[in-house]
Design a protein around this nucleic acid. Structure first.
Lengths: 147, 147
DNA sequence: CCGATCCAGTTGTATTCTGCAACCAGAGGG
DNA sequence: CCCTCTGGTTGCAGAATACAACTGGATCGG
């Protein structure tokens, strides 16, 4: 396999993955779409942030985030807290329920991955993980993100 | 890095990739959505197939495929041909225009990938490609496809 | 202090993609 | 000749999204 062929293969396989992800998104976690999941995850990581931060981080329109946040709040998964120093700002935090759901879904996803990767030798797992990190870290080259 | 950590990393990085793909889908190829692109690609690969084949292959509802096909035909990218042996069946084929657009988009995606992977050693490219193939080939484990 | 401006977020509107259910038409078997 | 199966279309509804207009608070130049 030449380097050119390898690039072709990576392109094709990433496309397949992205397509499948899109096709089956939401079927796996009926209670949490892929977007909601990542938003909750971000709130956990950052221990609370603003809607605008979510929008810029995920390249979503602020209206989209606003509606997602509204839905997540209605579902009791997050809480809004007025920032005392700036009344325009709402700092979003996971609720206890949100933390629970997030943990649940994360574990289910983790199990699915584990199962799928069960028969891989440890060495390959580590290399694959490293390649993926490197690929994603290659930054926000916008055009390559569609896989 | 332990095997467990590696699986975690793979899960996390695949999720990042899927999320980005979804977020920016369609912005890269205004003239061709990700789904349309893969449908055209499949038609090229198989040198013509039925709508039902597309639906089952991509786990889409037949109504969805029907509408996509209608749109692609309206755009002049594909042609329907009545199967003489079974009048229910329409065999779908790429038109010349469809072939051209597909080639264009493929090249643009290819260029983006090449750029992103430009500084990778050939050995790593080949291994990464192999891992991705292996991961996707792991079949249609439905739950793992969301990355 | 005050208007111009900026910023965070919401809401109205439209589009796209999707699935489910109902339906139509052709094919094949009893 | 019905019955059923299959390929495909259409009606309907829901989710996600973007863009634009708007509200209300913050900030800054004068």
């Amino acid at each position: 396999m030449t380097a050119t062929e390898a690039v072709e293969t990576i392109q094709r396989e990433m496309t397949i993955f992205a397509r499948r992800a899109r096709a089956s998104a939401g079927r796996m976690h009926p209670e949490l779409s892929l977007v909601s999941y990542t938003l909750l995850g971000h709130l956990e990581e950052t221990d609370g942030c603003r809607a605008t931060d979510l929008a810029t981080h995920y390249a979503l329109d602020k209206s989209t985030v606003s509606r997602q946040v509204t839905a997540l709040e209605r579902a009791g998964l997050i809480e809004r807290r007025q920032a005392p120093e700036d009344h325009r700002v709402q700092v979003l935090h996971l609720s206890a329920a949100g933390r629970g759901i997030l943990r649940q879904v994360t574990q289910r996803r983790r199990a699915a991955f584990r199962e799928r990767l069960a028969d891989w030798p440890e060495e390959d797992l580590e290399r694959f993980a490293g390649y993926l990190e490197r690929y994603n870290a290659a930054g926000t080259t916008p055009s390559a993100e569609n896989g």
